[in-house]
Design a protein around this nucleic acid. Structure first.
Length: 194
DNA sequence: GCAAGGATATCG
DNA sequence: GATATCCTTGCA
């Protein structure tokens, strides 16, 4: 859930995540130990860790283990349920602000995007919800936080696969099935719905 | 299939 | 201070 005091509320159901566990996990940002960037991962659980990847995409993570044990879950996709117009507006605003040259017709494409595709990827989740690195350290479990987690109905089915884009980590970290998603759900990222 | 894009970690 | 790399996306 994301509350904006003026614009309103955006909400959705998380349908795809990845787990990153400990300094020994060579796919995790914690693999180099504590640094300025990943400091919040070493703190108490329930906090947001937002980082920039590939120079343009913010990715939202939830710290999951007690202080001293760096672990987080990457939120890879959300099925929007509330504030659809707000998400669309945020996606367009993001595209204009972040991309050097906005392609002709891009505004139209975002306007025509199916609801299920508004937050169907880790970068898109942040773009749709207006989340960036400034949100790092937000207590996602505090009902008063502008960005927060709420309980959702349990998925009927959850599938697992290897994590995406972690080829640099090597075996076994490239192979371990720590990506979890709702199979067939149209908001799951890219062509990875199964 | 690949370029865009900036921060990060590491090395000199 | 320079550089290789990156938990991605939307185009050709």
């Amino acid at each position: 859930v994301r509350d904006d005091p003026v614009a309103g509320t955006r909400a959705g159901t998380i349908v795809e995540v990845e787990a990153y566990i400990g300094e020994e996990d060579l796919a995790s940002h914690a693999r180099f130990g504590e640094t300025a960037r990943n400091r919040v991962m070493f703190g108490p659980p329930g906090m947001a860790y937002v980082y920039l990847v590939y120079g343009m995409y913010d990715c939202l993570n939830v710290v999951t283990e007690p202080a001293g044990r760096p672990a987080a879950v990457l939120v890879r996709a959300v099925a929007p349920s509330e504030g659809i117009d707000l998400m669309r507006a945020a996606r367009l605003e993001w595209a204009i602000g972040r991309r050097r040259a906005i392609q002709p017709g891009q505004a139209g494409r975002i306007a025509d995007l199916p609801v299920a595709r508004l937050a169907s990827g880790p970068g898109l989740v942040c773009a749709a919800f207006g989340i960036d690195r400034a949100a790092t350290g937000t207590d996602l479990c505090d009902p008063a936080s502008p960005v927060r987690l709420e309980a959702a109905p349990a998925a009927v089915e959850v599938a697992a696969s290897p994590r995406i884009g972690v080829g640099y980590a090597g075996v076994p970290w490239t192979d371990v099935a720590w990506r979890f998603f709702v199979p067939g759900e149209p908001s799951v990222s890219g062509r990875r719905r199964r």
